[in-house]
Design a protein around this nucleic acid. Structure first.
Lengths: 138, 138
DNA sequence: TCCTACATTGGACATTGTCCAAGTCAAGAA
DNA sequence: TTCTTGACTTGGACAATGTCCAATGTAGGA
């Protein structure tokens, strides 16, 4: 994740303790925290960090493409730092668990020109929904 | 949409003026209102209808599969009454406009067994994002 | 070391959604 | 038709998530 910090520096960002901590929390694959979860984990290391700062930093990371926003349930948005390998999500309808998955093919290619209505399409996301093994057995 | 009212009656539902009005608002294709929009339109015909009633009715319609919930932006959920013809959504990132689209192929088939992690998958939704012609030219 | 533009803070506010006790009414029974 | 009753609606309080802003703090260049 020091890569990220460097990329931020390259963009002229000031490297504050708060931004560093948020970046550290988001380090790793298969991370899909809500803003509040990011805040709680950041506060473990930097207790006085403000909620607004976490929201600001997350928005900035999304704006520059380092993190993706994922809305799986209409509740809190989740933040997905794994933007380097394209992937889709598999969500348990019961407990909300999220897994990264890699379907074959390109969903963009599946949309005929006649179905594009003049849009310039930049992105296609697939959300698979179902029941995870744990929820299924309880 | 009188079909819907009949189906509701068949399920033993009481047909109140409120439910009737909500069903009427949701009549038609390419309807993707938020709960508040449904409430506003319902209130045009039945001014004293309560927000809670609209939320209740929408939840019930979703529960029996007559309406789908769509979370395109992490803001308010939208309600999509077109559940008879499976379709996906194309969303303008700028203005939020939604169009129904029909990609080819079955996204479920694109997810290999090894990528299912023991989940029982019931559904796959695709969201295409881009810029609509109107927003592109302004 | 000092400046200053940018970042952070904390609290008020906005939006969306949920809950509940009290009142109302649809629809079957008589 | 009228009565009865349990399901439905109401309105307002509350919860969860997110945004905004004026005051304060500070990273990094001069």
């Amino acid at each position: 994740m020091s890569d990220l910090l460097e990329r931020l520096r390259d963009r002229g960002w000031r490297l504050t303790a708060q931004r560093r901590v948020v970046a550290e929390v988001l380090d790793g694959d298969h991370v899909h925290y809500t803003a509040d979860e990011v805040h709680a984990r950041a506060a473990d290391r930097l207790p006085e960090i403000a909620r607004a700062t976490v929201y600001n930093t997350l928005s900035e990371l999304v704006a520059i493409g380092e993190v993706r926003e994922v809305s799986t349930d209409g509740r809190a948005k989740r933040y997905d730092p794994n933007t380097h390998h394209t992937h889709q999500h598999l969500v348990c309808s019961r407990c909300g668990t999220i897994r990264d998955v890699h379907p074959t093919g390109d969903p963009l290619a599946a949309l005929p020109e006649a179905e594009r209505y003049g849009f310039t399409i930049s992105d296609a996301t697939i959300t698979y929904r179902g029941t995870c093994p744990r929820c299924a057995s309880s």
